[in-house]
Structure formats: structure tokens, C-alpha cells
């Protein structure tokens, strides 16, 4: 199997139909294991049971960035290699990425509630994720604003790549802005101090959520391909010679 094989949408549909059931099964099993491990993980001596939000929050936060990475590669595919499935992949990923980012924000604010006493704190990390969320929404608005998907594809690809280049700058600026205003008073979950009892469930959950993304992404790509086929069939029907 190579990229050339995948380039043909019909081949892609056939192949993904075969792979999808296995992916769904793997996702469900890993999610079940991960959730069980998370539920049975010990409480944190400082944060108590709320630490368990981490097992959902961290995978979502990781995916919020990972999906933008996937979209960036797909955008390169659109602009450089003109891969016929690249813009389908980019378009299908955007709403899923936005959903993961939203969940990261939601779980982050729920996690922050007992720490900060408010649902929202302009913490550098959360703020960066919020900006990422805005960029996802903007990208989705762009896809929606142009009716012809192949025309929207290039604009969206440029925006995605510019976003990918800008994200580190935004992250840096937000960190700088945040430390300028307040010394680090909020929680710091040092990665290295994480105990094994937390680390293993977290890794399992991260893999499970990544699989979840791959499954949803494949399904969304199939939908998008079918949607475009319906569209071109409709256009053919409209162009049919009037009686």
C-alpha cells in the first residue's frame, strides 16, 4: 500500500471500510482499559480525586495540537503534492480537532475550579489552548463560507500552515504576557514528578484518544468524499438537458 493507492478516492473508500471496524474495536478496548485504570488510580495527596480529570484532559490537550499537525501535513499535501485526498483529510480533521480542543478547555476549567476558585483563569496554557480553539473555529468558518470545497481548500491550506508557523509564536507571547502580569502561582504539574501509578493510565488514555481521533477522522473523510460525490451528481443532474 502506498500513497498512490490511497490517492484514488474509490480505493480509499474500499480500504477504509475494511480497516474501520478493527479501529473501532481497538479504540473501544483501549478506552475501556484506560478508563478502568484511571478510575482505580490512587488519589493525589494534594488534589484528591480531581486529579483524575487529568486522564481526560491531557489526552485532549495533546490531540488539540496533534490534529493541527495532521491538518498541516494535509495542507502541504494540498499545496505541494496536490494529493486529491489531502483537502478531504484537512477538512474532515478541523471539526474533530475543535471538539478535542473544546474538551481540553472544558476539562481544564473544571480541573481549575477547585484550584483557582473560578472556572477560568487566564493561565498561560489554558489561554494558548483557547486561542487554538478560536483558530479551529475560524478555519471551520472558512470552510463553510465558500460553497465549492475545492476552492476553499487552498485558502484553508494556507491558513492552516500560517497557523502552524504562528502557534509557537503565540504560545511564546502568551507565556511572556502571563509571566509579565503574575508570577507563576497556579498549579504546575511537573512532568518528571509524575508517579508511575499516574503515568501508565495516562499513556494508555493518550493512545486510546489518538486511536479515537484516527477512527473519527477516517469516518469523517469517508463522509466528506461521499458528500462531494452527492454534490457532483446533483450538479450533473442540474446540467441535464432540459426537455
Amino acid at each position: 500500500m502506498s500513497l498512490i493507492d490511497l490517492a484514488n478516492p474509490t480505493r480509499f473508500l474500499a480500504l477504509s471500510a475494511r480497516v474501520l471496524p478493527w479501529l473501532v474495536a481497538a479504540t473501544i478496548i483501549l478506552l475501556a482499559i484506560g478508563l478502568y485504570q484511571s478510575a482505580t488510580a490512587p488519589d493525589d495527596y494534594q488534589q484528591g480525586a480531581t486529579v483524575k480529570i487529568m486522564f481526560i484532559h491531557v489526552p485532549n490537550a495533546w490531540l488539540s495540537m496533534f490534529v493541527w499537525g495532521v491538518m498541516s501535513v494535509a495542507s502541504l499535501g494540498t499545496l505541494v503534492w496536490r494529493h486529491p485526498l489531502a483537502d478531504v483529510a484537512a477538512k474532515a480533521a478541523a471539526p474533530i480537532g475543535a471538539a478535542f480542543t473544546f474538551l481540553a478547555l472544558l476539562t481544564g476549567s473544571l480541573w481549575g475550579r477547585p484550584m483557582w476558585g473560578t472556572y477560568w483563569e487566564w493561565d498561560a496554557r489554558l489561554t494558548s489552548v483557547l486561542i487554538l480553539f478560536l483558530m479551529y473555529l475560524g478555519l471551520m468558518a472558512l470552510w463553510r463560507a465558500v460553497e465549492d470545497p475545492s476552492r476553499a481548500a487552498r485558502a484553508a491550506a494556507v491558513l492552516t500552515l500560517v497557523g502552524a508557523l504562528n502557534l509557537p509564536i503565540i504560545k511564546f507571547s502568551v507565556d511572556w504576557w502571563n509571566t509579565l502580569h503574575q508570577p507563576a502561582s497556579v498549579m504546575r504539574m511537573g512532568g518528571s514528578t509524575l508517579d508511575k501509578a499516574f503515568l501508565i493510565p495516562l499513556l494508555v488514555m493518550a493512545v486510546a484518544f489518538t486511536l479515537l481521533f484516527v477512527t473519527l477522522h477516517l469516518a469523517a473523510m469517508r463522509n466528506e468524499i461521499l458528500r462531494r460525490r452527492v454534490r457532483s451528481l446533483q450538479m450533473m443532474q442540474a446540467g441535464r438537458k432540459a426537455a
Binding site: Q234, M235, Q237, A238, G239, R240, A242
Partner: peptide, 22 residues
């Protein structure tokens, strides 16, 4: 009567200039 009955449920954006006039 104007020869558009086959396209009734399609978006008007799919129509050609002549079909729009119809």
C-alpha cells in the same frame, strides 16, 4: 413549463445562467 422540474430540489447555485433565467 420552463424545463426545470428535474432540478426542483437542487440548490440554485448549481444552475447555469440560462437555467437561472428559466
Amino acid at each position: 413549463a420552463v424545463g426545470l422540474d428535474h432540478a426542483a430540489d437542487l440548490p440554485a447555485s448549481f444552475l447555469s445562467a440560462g437555467q437561472r433565467r428559466r
